[in-house]
Every structure is written in structure tokens, then in C-alpha cells.
């Protein structure tokens, strides 16, 4: 195995002390009443344990993911520069394409139930603080979402670079899970995914549902029409459309898989079964399900009704 196939360092593991320090700092800011930071003990325990469980689950599938990436790279179509100054161009191209891949993965993870089932635990907290960032998936390695990164290897980006860049993206996304930072200068807010953008992403208010999928660059949402700015008129309410009823960590991980299985048993045709699995979360055969699209449309209709004065 060469250095190009296997990342010499796990950047996420290296960043763990930084995660711990920043969480302690955020708690300190809340304790000193310097920032609107809120932590609930059981919620925090769940977030941290979900992060720990995710590393175990990731280790179980790492061999398959790594092996597949290396195999695809051996069948690459380009030999990209990996030494000297030209490697800078390779890194810039990888940064952009990996971030675009993340956008696609993240959008899929919200708009199709099979992938949402693995991602939902990241959104299941009613809190939004740095510990929420560590609520990572346990089942994401099983639903094949990692396949989306294989085209990067096929293009010629070495697996080691891909894994490092994925790690950098994950580390970047940690710090934006906070209410302690309101807004940053407009140029940064225009280009980068910022705490205000990601608060919207974690909000369950209908107007904010399925918005701001970005990893590092918010420009993808602006380009593909999924951007929504945070407005002070409507504070974010965090969690999922139907919040979980307890702090059972296994419910957080598996509840949507359970719901899919239940709905599959009730499905009356193969087409309905396909929609149960691959349709949008909340889909119902009668068209009245609580999908993000329907909830947003109902919200828009209510908002329009309130804005329009009654006819006299």
C-alpha cells in the first residue's frame, strides 16, 4: 500500500482535542452568560455517545470503503500531479469537487428516505451546540452513500487525498454548530457555510426545512436554489418534524429504519413500497404526508393568507 492509497494521518482523530476544548469553551460562554448557549445533560450525553458509536461503526465499514476507493483509483482516467507545486492545483480541484460531492450527498441524505434514515440522528436533538456536531451516523456506511465519492478516485485523485479532504470538511463543519456566533462579515457569509446558515439547516420551522446543504462553501446552495437566509423574525426551532419522544440513543439511531420497515409492511403495491423507501421523508400514498415540500407549501400559503388583507 502506498502513501497515495492510504492517508498517513487521520485528521479527524487529530482534531478531537480541539473539539473537546471548543465544547468546554462554549459551555463556559454559556455559564458566564456571554453567549446564548444552552446545554441539556442527557441531550449532550446522547450527542457524544452517538459520536463515539459512529467511530466504531465507521471502523467496521472502513475496509470496504477504503478498498473500493483504492480499486477505483487503480482504474483512474487521469494521472493528476501529486508532487511539487502542481499538487496545489490538484488540491484546489479536489477541494471544490469534494465539497460539491458533499453537497450532493447531503441533499440526498435529506430528500430521500433511505439515506435520511441514516442521517436523521444528526438532526434529532432539540439543541444546537457544538456537541450536536458530533451526533454522527451509525448506519451511513451501510446505505452506500460513500459510493458518491468514488468518481473522485476515478478522476484520478489519490484515495489518501480524498480521505484527508473529507476529514477537513468534517472538521470545518464542527465549529458552525453553535448559537454563540450570530453573523460574520457579509463576504464570508456569502461564500462560506457559516453558523447562521447551518442553524437554518438544523431548524424544523417549515420555511427552513431542507435548506443549506453545504459542507464548506455555501455557494452550492446559492447555485442550486436551496439557500435560505436566517431571519431574526423567525428564530430557529431545532430538531426534526416529529421530535423523538425520549433520550433512548438506539431510538435516535434506528427509529427511521423502524418506520420504513413498518411502512413497507403496510405498502399495497411495489410502487408504493419503492416510494416508502426511496421517496421523500414523510411521503404518504394519499399525497398528504408531511414532506418538507408540502410543509413549506402550507407554510407559504398561511404566510400569504396572513399578508393579504381580507377583501371588503
Amino acid at each position: 500500500m502506498t502513501d497515495l492509497e492510504h492517508a498517513p494521518i487521520d485528521v479527524v482523530t487529530l482534531a478531537v482535542p480541539l473539539f473537546v476544548l471548543l465544547i468546554v469553551l462554549e459551555i463556559g460562554l454559556g455559564w458566564l452568560k456571554r453567549a446564548p448557549v444552552r446545554y441539556e445533560t442527557r441531550d449532550t450525553a446522547n450527542s457524544l455517545l452517538l459520536g463515539l458509536g459512529s467511530t466504531v461503526a465507521g471502523a467496521l465499514t472502513a475496509g470496504i470503503v477504503g478498498g473500493a476507493t483504492i480499486w477505483v483509483w487503480h482504474h483512474r482516467i487521469l494521472d493528476l500531479p501529486v508532487t511539487g507545486w502542481p499538487v496545489l492545483g490538484t488540491w484546489i480541484a479536489l477541494f471544490l469537487l469534494e465539497d460539491l460531492t458533499y453537497y450532493a450527498f447531503h441533499r440526498l441524505s435529506h430528500e430521500r428516505r433511505f439515506w435520511w434514515a441514516a442521517h436523521v440522528n444528526h438532526h434529532s436533538s432539540q439543541h444546537y451546540n457544538l456537541s450536536t456536531a458530533l451526533r454522527q451516523t451509525w448506519t451511513g456506511g451501510l446505505n452506500g452513500s460513500w459510493l458518491l465519492w468514488l468518481p473522485l478516485a476515478f478522476l484520478g485523485f489519490p484515495p489518501a487525498m480524498i480521505f484527508v479532504q473529507k476529514g477537513i470538511s468534517l472538521i470545518y463543519q464542527f465549529w458552525i454548530h453553535t448559537e454563540a456566533v450570530r453573523r460574520l462579515p457579509a463576504p464570508l457569509e456569502y461564500v462560506l457555510n457559516m453558523p447562521s446558515h447551518h442553524r437554518v439547516h438544523h431548524a424544523r420551522n417549515p420555511r427552513y426545512l431542507d435548506r443549506n446543504y453545504a459542507g464548506i462553501l455555501i455557494i452550492w446552495d446559492r447555485m442550486f436554489g436551496t439557500f435560505e437566509a436566517e431571519t431574526d423574525d423567525e428564530p430557529c426551532r431545532y430538531g426534526i418534524v416529529k421530535n423523538l419522544g425520549d433520550f433512548n440513543i438506539f431510538r435516535a439511531v434506528f427509529h427511521e429504519w423502524w418506520a420504513i420497515a413498518r411502512d413497507l409492511v403496510r405498502a399495497r403495491s411495489p410502487g408504493e413500497a419503492a416510494m416508502v423507501v426511496f421517496g421523500p421523508p414523510g411521503w404518504r400514498a394519499d399525497g398528504q404526508g408531511d414532506t418538507a415540500k408540502i410543509l413549506r407549501a402550507r407554510w407559504a400559503a398561511r404566510a400569504e393568507g396572513q399578508a393579504t388583507p381580507p377583501a371588503t
Binding site: E40, T44, A45, T55, V56
Partner: peptide, 27 residues
């Protein structure tokens, strides 16, 4: 080494949860 990493992480989690409990900053 992975098991050691897990053990250290679990210890950190216990400390962090304790810090959260002591801070008492829920909504």
C-alpha cells in the same frame, strides 16, 4: 490502539457530561 482510543474517548465523554451537568445551562 483503537480500543485504547475508544476508552479514552469514553472517559472524555464522562467528563464532558459532568461539566454540562455542573454548568447547569439548559433552556
Amino acid at each position: 490502539s483503537f480500543l485504547l482510543q475508544l476508552g479514552i474517548s469514553a472517559a472524555f465523554i464522562a467528563v464532558m457530561v459532568a461539566v454540562t451537568a455542573v454548568a447547569r445551562i439548559p433552556r
